Simulated scan of single mutants.
Amino acid sequence: MLREYQEYVLAYRLRRAVGGRVTPPGEQLRLSEYAALRLERQDLARSLVRRGLDGARMRRLDALSDQLMFGFWLNPSEVAAFLRAAIREGSHPALGDPAAFARLLTPAEQARLGTGGVAQVCAHHIACFALAAPMLDPDGLNAAWERIEATRPPLFLDELQQPAP
């Protein structure tokens, strides 16, 4: 769950940076808020499987998925939809420039990661954008997944660190 929250925060920061219609509504969720909504989403999905589809519950599941940006980085259709929307908003350097993506990290996160770690985080997330292009090309999709797995970053967010005694 911590890695999932970290992915949510980076997606939130990126969407804020791009702006326009991709700007997430509301403030960034704290870890405890994210966890509560994630558990609600999980319970809702489980109940839809057990009890069958229901319009109101499906809409709530979709709303929670959108709010949590569930699958933002690793779902090819989500990545493609985001990139199309981001391009309509004028794009953003962080979509392809590692230095611009690094600016999404706080100074403490950058210090915690070090130069190599920041490079890994940027390479990993920029590699995720490659999922949008090869959706129809299995070899391209496999290559994209290999790049993503090879650059998987550690946990580093400020929000996930224990306060100093």
Rank of each mutant, 00 (worst) to 15 (best):
F101Y: 12
L37H: 03
T115H: 15
R46P: 10
R103S: 12
F70Y: 15
A36K: 13
E109L: 00
R50N: 05
A63C: 04
S77M: 14
A45D: 07
R51Q: 15
P93K: 07
L113P: 06
L64A: 06
L48R: 12
W73Q: 09
A63I: 11
V121I: 02
V49Y: 10
T106D: 06
D43R: 14
A130C: 10
F101K: 03
D97S: 02
L83A: 07
R60I: 02
L44R: 07
L39G: 10
A85C: 02
L113I: 05
A56F: 07
R112W: 15
F72R: 12
A119Y: 09
A130P: 04
C122D: 02
V49C: 11
H125C: 00
A36N: 06
W73F: 00
S91Q: 05
G114C: 02
T115C: 10
A63D: 08
D43P: 06
R88E: 15
G117M: 08
V118I: 07
A111F: 13
A102K: 04
Y34W: 11
A80G: 08
A132E: 12
A94W: 00
G55Q: 10
D54L: 02
V121P: 04
G71E: 04
R41V: 09
A108N: 14
F72I: 09
R84Y: 05
H125A: 00
L48G: 01
R46W: 05
E109I: 03
A85F: 01
A45K: 11
T115P: 08
L104E: 02
T115D: 15
